[in-house]
Computed example of a mutant assay.
Amino acid sequence: MKKYLGEGLLIVFSVLFALFINSLAQKYQTSQKVKVAKESLLKEMEQNQVIMTQWKEKHSKILKHIDEIIKNDSLQEELIKDHFLDIGALTGQENLISSLVTSTAWETAQATQILSELDFDTTQELTYVYELQNSIINSTLPDLVDIYFQRETHRKESLLPTLIQFKLHFNEIVGQETLLVTLYPGAIEKLQD
Rank of each mutant, 00 (worst) to 15 (best):
K2R: 08
G6H: 05
G8M: 14
L9F: 10
L10Y: 15
I11N: 09
F13A: 15
F13C: 13
S14D: 06
V15E: 12
L16Y: 14
S23W: 03
Q26D: 09
K27R: 14
Y28S: 15
Q29H: 10
T30S: 07
S31T: 09
K35I: 09
V36L: 09
V36C: 04
K38P: 06
E39R: 01
K43M: 11
K43P: 03
E44G: 14
E44N: 15
E46Q: 15
Q47E: 14
I51L: 05
E57S: 12
S60V: 02
I62N: 02
I62P: 12
L63N: 14
H65W: 07
I66Q: 00
E68F: 09
I70F: 12
K71N: 08
N72V: 05
N72W: 01
N72I: 03
D73Q: 13
L75M: 13
E77F: 06
E77P: 08
L79D: 04
L79C: 09
L79S: 06
I80S: 05
I80C: 04
D82L: 10
H83I: 01
H83D: 15
D86P: 13
A89K: 12
T91V: 10
Q93C: 10
Q93S: 14
I97P: 06
L100G: 05
L100S: 11
V101E: 08
S103Y: 02
A105F: 07
E107F: 14
E107I: 01
A109N: 03
T112V: 13
Q113R: 13
Q113V: 09
L115A: 02
L115T: 08
L115V: 06
L115C: 04
L115N: 02
S116P: 04
S116Q: 09
S116W: 04
S116I: 08
E117Q: 11
L118W: 10
D121S: 09
T122Q: 08
T122V: 07
E125K: 15
E125V: 04
Y128V: 05
Y128L: 05
V129L: 05
E131A: 11
Q133S: 03
N134R: 11
S135L: 06
S135N: 12
N138Y: 02
T140F: 00
T140M: 00
P142I: 01
P142V: 01
L144I: 12
V145L: 07
V145R: 03
D146P: 00
D146I: 02
I147L: 14
I147Y: 01
Y148P: 13
F149C: 01
F149H: 14
Q150I: 10
R151V: 13
T153H: 05
T153Q: 02
R155W: 04
S158E: 15
L159I: 04
L159E: 11
L160N: 11
L160K: 15
T162Y: 09
F166L: 02
K167Q: 14
K167Y: 10
V174A: 01
G175V: 01
Q176T: 01
E177R: 04
Y184A: 03
Y184D: 08
G186P: 06
A187K: 05
E189S: 12
K190D: 10
K190F: 03
Q192F: 10
